[in-house]
Amino acid sequence: MRYAMAIDTNKCVGCTDCVVACQTENNVPIGYCRDWITETVDGTYPNIEIELRSERCNHCDNAPCVRCCPTGASQVADGGIVITVEDECIGCGACIESCPYEARYTHPDGYVDKCTFCLHRVKEGELPACVAVCPTKCMYFGDLEDPNSDVSKVMKFRKYKTLAPEAGTDPHIFYLI
């Protein structure tokens, strides 16, 4: 089993619903967020191209945060989901420094926190909160190894890219272009 997410940059309108849904679902402290929207503007008006991306932890296969963690608090859970265990985290910041996506932050309580692909929901067979609320249905979540999952099906016929593949992290958030 390998969970992954595909996000359609053509369907995303940047409404930030996914951000608010995540903050609500995961009790993210005020002022913090586990996902965010990036807008890439290319060119000058009127020859302009805009790409909108809902970004979060890439749940890398070769996760530098897991490699650099001195206590093993950063670890890979079921289905390749990268998580941090708060009781094992010392708050040294090695994982934050090592993440090319800057997807981690220090929780006000001291430990490092990040996107979990809503592991607690996924275990129950539900979709992550961000995917569940997306009003344009631009996010696809599922098991990459299952050819009938939403994510596998959409990636079969669409072109996609990943962020900073040159960092060698083998990210598992795919942006449909």
């Binding site: 940047g14 930030t16 951000v19 002022g31 913090y32 967020c33 965010w36 929207i37 990036t38 807008e39 890439t40 503007v41 290319d42 060119g43 000058t44 909108l52 910041g93 934050i96 420094e97 800057e102 932050y105 220090t106």
Partner: peptide
Amino acid sequence: MKEELIISGRNLPHIDPHLNLWH
């Protein structure tokens, strides 16, 4: 010109606008 902006608002302490976690 290429420009990247976080438009959902993100101001994580010691991470945004650039990483300054270790002092």
